[in-house]
Design a protein around this nucleic acid. Structure first.
Lengths: 151, 151
DNA sequence: CCTTATCGTTATAGATCATAACAAATGACA
DNA sequence: TGTCATTTGTTATGATCTATAACGATAAGG
């Protein structure tokens, strides 16, 4: 046996994810963005007014870790904060952010197509569903046990 | 449209990978290991004498970043270094490391089965191949362009 | 000997992530 | 009204992971 890792979904996921994210970051670098930034812009494009906590939940990023991300994008004038609440702030794309978001969408869609084009023909159709299924399966395992089974 | 990310392979890969790795780390925590450590133990179990550079290439980890990993495992008496060369050192599991590796394999195989069990029946068979295909596709894109097209 | 490449290593900086804590605001409820 | 649990944004901190550059020692090919 030469590679004991080649059958382990966890390892294969990590490897594929790292490669894909590297490619994505490389494409986004000319725009001065990382993939996290780009994801947030896409969210705000589709769902203007999303708060940073909500966006964090969508992106699986903790509230605390959203702070530098939002600050960075706000500092660049790409997004605005509008008070929704006494505590919540809805995030919106600025004009500049919206323009950049259009470029982001082009880059990401091109990358997505290129990635899917690199798959064997017979896998292409169901591939995205497989990734989603892996996420659901892994999440189910994480919810099942992690810090007490009080449910 | 509510979630603009749900069709993007890159995002889905990242999310699935993060969830799977979190679950794996949680299972390995009682053994005092992280998934990277566990991967290295598995490699050394199947391929004793692998050097740390070779292992780094298998794991997609830079030489420099292998140093703390190997040092940590050596410090715990789980692996030994045996000079192969004037410069290379073959890594081997110690008796203690081999015993721990057996536990690691149990945990990882259990996790792998649980993860696959959580997939829809019609996806289970080809799922691992899809992950491998995504990696190959992403790698191909990364090799194609990244630092000059002198080929 | 010289050149080139590899290995292990150190150092450094940036990203990512988890956790704990806090003030302010909100909602539920008596 | 007041009380209590929850949520939001925030600061701070430490751990982990990654990328890059550099160095000395070694190896391989001339």
């Amino acid at each position: 046996m030469s590679d004991p890792l080649s059958t382990l979904p966890g390892y294969l996921l990590r490897r594929a994810s790292a490669a894909a994210l590297a490619g994505l970051n490389r494409r986004l670098a000319p725009l001065g963005l990382r993939h996290v930034d780009a994801s947030l812009l896409l969210i705000l494009h589709s769902m203007p007014g999303t708060t940073q906590s909500e966006a964090g939940r969508l992106l699986d990023i903790q509230r605390a870790n959203m702070v530098p991300i939002v600050s960075r994008l706000e500092g660049r004038g790409l997004i605005d904060r509008q008070k929704v609440d006494g505590r919540s702030q809805g995030l919106h794309l600025s004009a500049k952010g919206d323009a950049l978001c259009a470029e982001v969408r082009e880059e990401i869609e091109a990358y997505e197509l290129a990635l899917l084009a690199g798959l064997p023909d017979d896998m292409r159709e169901g591939a995205v569903a497989v990734l989603d299924a892996f996420w659901r399966a892994a999440e189910a395992l994480n919810v099942e046990a992690p810090s007490g089974e009080e449910g």
